[in-house]
Structure formats: structure tokens, C-alpha cells
Nucleic acid binder design. Structure first.
Lengths: 331, 331
DNA sequence: ATCAAAAATGATTGCGCTACCATAAATCGT
DNA sequence: ACGATTTATGGTAGCGCAATCATTTTTGAT
């Protein structure tokens, strides 16, 4: 019995042959350990912190749902705490640590805040950053390939016939912003379209910043026929501005977003966007933390870089440009 | 020990004096039962179904978060299942029951679908309807007072000086729609403003239906100076239409919503709305179900009608009308 | 080949609770 | 007031696992 327990918990002192035999038996008998008994017997109750500031609520909901689900499955406890705008990040992090946690998962934008990460590192709390593009040394990361995703979406737009594709960048402090811009540039380069700096407007991931950025792009002398916003909130804002100017979407202007949060399908037309599987990502984060913690391998945490798949979801906000330069054949 | 166990599980055979003594001791010692041990010892694992179709994603997220939290706390299991658009409701419900559930919680719009409710009733599954205004006989309900909330918000608008307040009704099949309209009418009556049917447009709780309804209201010869939409999605649509027509919100038009979902604060201006505490409501639903089930009192379920508090949250989408008839004093 | 040390395996115990049955106290009928 | 019921309380076992320590097997050095 004890040997089985050891195999399940990946403890060291078991011969490989025995381990294999046990695993074979487990598979054959379809055995699964009883969580209740396990924690009753004093198996350390794993507590995982979830610290967040103010990302989009839709993002957060999905994130929490995913982590709670996995926590339920693997018998861990999630301690959710919000750090208010303008509050001291280091202090909030210390408070969370003082509350007693074995590990922590961090959604953006906190997962790139050095104030938070430094405190965590000093306290040696295993950390998983979810949805960062540039994970800090020493923390695990669950992410999508932002650059490829942006490249795909841009290529899709170019494939539709758009030659002037505007881009609304994300918050400059977040690494995903840089990656998405990079992907956009790569797609242009691949298609042989020169990069035009005036087609790139600065945004900050908020709806309001999207409003301003869209104004800038649409006020250009030669405005873009398509706009790719770095997230859905800014894409929605772009649609609003287009409508305010009497432009039809996608007839007169194609608009695409990124993330596929609820907003993407509430507004009309529904947004063509990149789907980032948020709930799945937070689920993986909890799973990773629990397995590392249970097997006392928290030292290994920093080596984990899990990239999950994204998906281009095409809806009603994109179309070929009204006048297609490519098709203007003579005669 | 056994007596304590009995008191905690509200089993019948305990003298009242003993019960009180035990409860006193529990309070004094700050005792809390160990969930792991409880389920290890064979206490029935409670499984609660959560069946949903396609409400707003924001609503659903909050709903799921609340129920999962409470489920974690009270050691129950939530089985989430979606019924696709156009699928057979009765069949989906039967499938869920076949999966083995002890109770079920139902968000709108399923909580008023007789196809679902009849199957549940026949199988004698304790049911809690969350956020209905007109709970069916035999099911418990957690709700807010939709009518009072709508009355308050309308009164607030009138207090601001609006005399012509437009109203976008919700889906006619849902009881909350009727209650909200009723509240609107009551507030008008209290203020001595005659009810004008042309100021009420039909919506269906979707963004797109809100677009149409807002068009109708703003195309009136004498359009309203304020519009109260029966949910936030339709309010957001109204803001979009106002902008498309070159109207400033709230300068030229006041717009208010209902529910306070994420969308209310993403768009600009942020919506003044009625906050419905969705997560809290689903938490209460699970709590109720678990306590009834554990104490084997599922017979009592239908007697529960829990009304939780709503709140008017004022943000930036409302203001006094530009020309205030009331203040046009002579001289 | 022999023994010491290290590694692997096994036996026992107890985590906190409830099901089940035994006992004690209260209630009732005559 | 007394036994026959009913009702309330207590004792014990065991749920499935891991911590701990005891035992066996393997390994390595001589």
C-alpha cells in the first residue's frame, strides 16, 4: 500500500520496475485516489493565491472560472484577492503571502509588475504568470503565441485584399503589445507591403483609448481600409467611431480584435478576432502549480513555458475592401 | 460526539436543550466540521446541476463564479451543462437528471421554460430559479425586486428633470421584463406624468434588438430626453445609436441600463444602471440547495422566496436634460 | 564471500467524521 | 407506580490515505 502511495505522489524511493508495475495496475484497475481521504490523512492542503488588479471583467471571470474548476478537481484552495488601483503593489503582495499561500497565479497586468514579482521571488513563492508574452526569469508561464496570432490575423486581412491595414497597439508596458505589433509587421513584410508608421496608433487596451486611436487612424488623409486592434475592447471602440462617422462595418471598414472576450459577440457586427482560451490557461496554471507542489518540485517551476493554441475566429466584422485594387484588370 | 454530529446535520432526535448546549459550545470553540473527513465517512456527496442556454456571457460568468465558490465552501459538486440553441430542452434536462444530480439551479431564461421545469418537477428534483420575477409554483427563487428597482431608476431620471423618458422593454417571455415595465409606469404615475405608449419600444435583451429599439425612439417627432433600457446590452446599443446620430451622451440624451454587467463599465460613457448581485445570488442558491439537501428537507424547497438587495449605481451616462422646462421661470 | 550501509518495501496508526447498533432516559398507558 | 414503548445519547468501527517506523532487499567495499 505504501509503495502505491509513493508511486502516486512521485516520491523517490521506489525502484523503477516496481513503479512500472504499480502504474500498470493503476491503469488496469482504473484506480483514482480519493481526495477526501488524502486530505484527511494530512496531505498538505494546497493554497493558491490569485492576485489581480483590474483587467477586463470578462477576462477575469473566465480566468477565475478556470482556476476554480481545476482547484475543485485537484483539491486545492484558491485565495482570490484584488489590489485596488493605486494601492501599494509590494504591500498587497506581502499581505497575500502573509495570509499563507503555497503558490500564486498572476493574470495580466500584474504578471509583469516587478514590484509584485520581486516580493514573490524573495519569499520563494512559486509563481505562474498567465498570458504574458515575455515571462520573467524564474516564474513559469502559460501563454499563447501572440506574435504568430497577430501575424495570422494580419495575413488574413491582407488575403482579403486589404493593402492599408491600420493597427492599434496595446499598452506599451505589456509585452504582449510588442509581440502583437511584431506579428503585424511580419505579416506585412511577408506580403511585401511596406510598413507605414502612420498606420499604427497607440492604445492602452481600454475602450476609451481605442476611441482616441481610431479617431487618429480614420482622420488620416488616406485612411486604412481595415483596422486591427490589439484587443477586443479597442476594436469595439473602433466600430463605435466608425459608426459615428457614418462608416459601415465591414462594408466601408474592416475591424478586428484580439482575445475573444464576451464583448466581441455582444456588439454588432460581431468581431472577427483571435481567441485566447483564458479559462483553459488558468486551469493549466493551477494544475501545474498543484503538481509541482505536491511532488515538492517547486524548484523546477521556472523551467515551465507552456504555449497553448489560439484560434482565429471569423465573424461579421471583416470583409474585402470595397474597391479592390488587385482586381482592377484592364478592359 | 454523535450528538454533536446530529446537531450539525440537523437530524431530528436531539432534545432542544441539548441542541442549544451543543450550539453554544460550537460557537465558543469556534468549531467547524472538517469537510474531508465528512465525505470520507460517507456523507452523501451533493451534486448540483447548473443548466444554461445562452444568456449574456458576463451574466453567466458571474453566475458560475458565485456557485462554484459556494460549492467549494460547502463541499458540493457543480455539474455545468449548456443546452445549445434550438436543442430539445426537455431532452437536455433529462440528460442532466440521468447524469445524477440532487438538485439544480437555473439562470434565466431557462428558469421560466416550462419544458425544463416540467421535467424537473416530474423527477422531483429540487430546483432553484435565480433571477426570475415570477417564480413557478414548486420551485425556490432567488431574485431582486425588479419592479422597485425600475421604479427607483425611473424616479431618479424624473428627479433629474426628465419629462419624456423612453423605455426599451425586455423579452416579452421573461417575467422580469413585465416587472421592469411596471416599475417604470409606477414611477411615472407617482410623478404625475401620463404614460405615453409611443415612448415604449420592444426589445429582446440583445444588443441588436437594442439597436432597433433605440432607432424607433430617437426617430420620434418629439423624442425622449432620456432612455431607460431594460438591460445593459440594450443600453449600450442605445448609446451607439445616439453617437451614430451625433447625439452626445449624456449631454443630449441620458441613457440608463439594468443589471450592471461588465459591459456597463467598458463602454464610454459608463452606464448608470441597477446593480443585480448575480454572483451573490447564485451563491445563495447553492447554499439553499445544500442546506435543504443535507437536512433532507427538499420538500420545503418551494416555500423559499429570497429577495436580495439591488443598488442604483450612478455613473456618467445620465444628466439633467439640456433645456429644463421646469426652470423656465418668467423674467 | 562477507559485512556495513543504503535503498526499497511493508506494517501500523490515526486523521475527523458518520453509520450502525447498544444503552440510557423520558414518556405513556393502565 | 410499574413495565412497555418511544426518544435521546453514547460506543465502536471503518471510510482511504500518508506519516512513521520496522523490516527486508540491494548495493558497494573489502
Amino acid at each position: 500500500m505504501m509503495t502505491v502511495s509513493r508511486v502516486i505522489n512521485s516520491e523517490p524511493k521506489v525502484r523503477q520496475s516496481t513503479r512500472d508495475a504499480v502504474n500498470a495496475a493503476i491503469a488496469e484497475l482504473n484506480y483514482a485516489p480519493n481526495r477526501a481521504a488524502r486530505s484527511l490523512a494530512g496531505a498538505a492542503q494546497i493554497r493558491i493565491g490569485l492576485l489581480y488588479s483590474n483587467p477586463s471583467e470578462a477576462f477575469l471571470s473566465a480566468f477565475i472560472v478556470g482556476s476554480l474548476e481545476e482547484a475543485g478537481r485537484s483539491d486545492a484552495q484558491i485565495i482570490v484577492q484584488k489590489v485596488e488601483d493605486g494601492a501599494d503593489l509590494a504591500q498587497a503582495t506581502e499581505r497575500m503571502i502573509a495570509g499563507g499561500i503555497d503558490g500564486i497565479i498572476l493574470p495580466p497586468p500584474l504578471n509583469e509588475e516587478s514590484a509584485v514579482l520581486e516580493v514573490l521571488e524573495r519569499a520563494a513563492i512559486p509563481t505562474v504568470a498567465v498570458s504574458t508574452a515575455r515571462p520573467r526569469e524564474g516564474v513559469a508561464a502559460i501563454m499563447i503565441d501572440d506574435r504568430s496570432a497577430a501575424r495570422e490575423l494580419t495575413a488574413h486581412l491582407i488575403g482579403l485584399g486589404h493593402q492599408r491595414v491600420g493597427f492599434i497597439a496595446g499598452h506599451p508596458d505589456l509585452s504582449a503589445s510588442g509581440e502583437r505589433l511584431e506579428g503585424y509587421r511580419e505579416a506585412l513584410a511577408e506580403a511585401g507591403i511596406p510598413y507605414d508608421e502612420s498606420l499604427v496608433a497607440q492604445g492602452y487596451f481600454t475602450y476609451r483609448s481605442g476611441l482616441d486611436a481610431a479617431e487618429v487612424l480614420l482622420s488620416l488623409d488616406n485612411p486604412p481600409s481595415a483596422i486591427f486592434a490589439s484587443n477586443d475592447d479597442m476594436a469595439a471602440a473602433t466600430v463605435a467611431i466608425a459608426h459615428r462617422r457614418g462608416l459601415d462595418v465591414p462594408g466601408d471598414l474592416t475591424v478586428c480584435g484580439f482575445d475573444d472576450v464576451a464583448l466581441a459577440t455582444t456588439i454588432w457586427p460581431e468581431l472577427t478576432t483571435i481567441q485566447q482560451p483564458i479559462a483553459q490557461m488558468s486551469r493549466r496554471a493551477v494544475e501545474l502549480l498543484v503538481s509541482l507542489l505536491r511532488n515538492k518540485k517547486q524548484g523546477e517551476i521556472s523551467t515551465h513555458r507552456i504555449v497553448v493554441d489560439h484560434k482565429l475566429v471569423r465573424r461579421q466584422s471583416d470583409a474585402a475592401p470595397r474597391r479592390r485594387p488587385v482586381l482592377r484588370v484592364p478592359g
